[in-house]
Simulated assay, not measured.
Amino acid sequence: MRLLKPRPPYQPLLLRLGHGLTSFFVIAAILTAFWTYNTYDGRWGRIPLPKWNAIEGIHGTFGLFSLLIFPLFFLYAVHRGHKRLIQANSLKKLTQVGKPVWWYTLHRLTNTLTILALTFALFSGKMMDETWLPKGELDRGWYYAHLISWVVLVICISLHVLMGAKVGGTPLLMSMFHWRFRAKDSPVLWRENIRRMLGRSRISSSLVQEWSQLSFPLKVLEVIVFVSLVGAFILPLFKG
């Protein structure tokens, strides 16, 4: 009897697009972050990469694109993909060690920690000054914080991928790269959906109602992330 290969689970098109764009810019920022460290610092190890002074600006560009795209992806993840994040009973489920629910809970917690790690990396990066490294000012507190944040982020992304492979295997990982989409996800409908949403007379009350339905951990997560992202844009204005 011929066994059929498991089909990849369907992922909403907006989730794939947001996840894909965020992943691309974040990974590019991580790679250029190491090259920047390798060029200007190297106190904890260095590899034979060309010394390229322009790499810091390229890293900053990828970081900025990550900062601009991430809030939209995060908003979708919390309000439409909340089942993939921390739940109100996550701590209770962690007591069921070794059971499937334990692995699924670890997967959700890893996803949540990855979001927090990226938030801190983006915030600490905005708090840095682009002149510090060229001038050899390597003992700045925000520079150390940014270095630590990217190391933590690399660890979290690695765990995110490993946990995805554990709970869903290759089909789950590959489902984020499929181009097929269902009729309800068609980009043709996006304009009409946005027009309908903006045309609601009680859009504010709808948002309040949706916020009230979030679990307490997700409310805390959303507040932390958006306060940090707003601060990332505002606080650097007062650095000088």
Rank of each mutant, 00 (worst) to 15 (best):
L198V: 08
H146K: 12
H178V: 02
L218N: 12
V78A: 10
V161N: 05
A165R: 11
R43W: 13
R195A: 07
P236W: 01
A88L: 13
K83Q: 10
L235I: 04
N89C: 09
W142P: 10
L67T: 07
P236F: 01
L221V: 13
G199T: 03
Y144N: 15
L85D: 00
G81S: 04
F24Q: 05
H19L: 02
K51R: 13
W102Y: 13
C156M: 15
K99I: 00
G136K: 15
M128I: 04
M1H: 10
H79K: 06
G169L: 07
S66Q: 03
D139N: 15
P171C: 07
D41M: 13
L72Y: 02
R7A: 10
M174Q: 09
H59D: 00
Y143G: 08
F177V: 09
H19Q: 00
P236M: 02
V220Y: 07
L106K: 14
Y10H: 10
L122E: 01
P8H: 07
L162A: 12
P9K: 15
R80Q: 13
V151T: 11
S23F: 14
E56Q: 06
S158W: 11
R2S: 11
G168C: 13
C156Q: 13
S186D: 01
A77W: 10
S124C: 06
R46N: 11
K99F: 02
A117C: 09
T61H: 11
F70D: 00
M1P: 07
K126F: 03
L237T: 03
H146F: 02
G231T: 10
S175V: 12
W142S: 04
R43S: 13
G57T: 10
F70L: 01
F181R: 04
Q209V: 15
N38S: 12
F233I: 08
A117H: 09
R108V: 08
R7Y: 06
G231R: 06
T131I: 14
V188T: 04
Y104P: 10
V152P: 06
R43D: 03
W103P: 15
K51I: 15
R46E: 05
V188C: 04
I234C: 12
K5E: 08
H59E: 00
F25R: 08
T131P: 01
I115Q: 00
F226P: 00
S158P: 15
L106D: 01
F238K: 14
S66H: 05
R202Q: 15
A117F: 11
L159R: 14
L67G: 05
E130D: 11
F123L: 11
L91Y: 14
D129M: 01
G18D: 01
I27C: 07
R140Q: 02
L4F: 09
P6V: 14
W150Y: 11
R180F: 13
W142Q: 03
G141I: 12
L21K: 08
Y144H: 15
S204A: 11
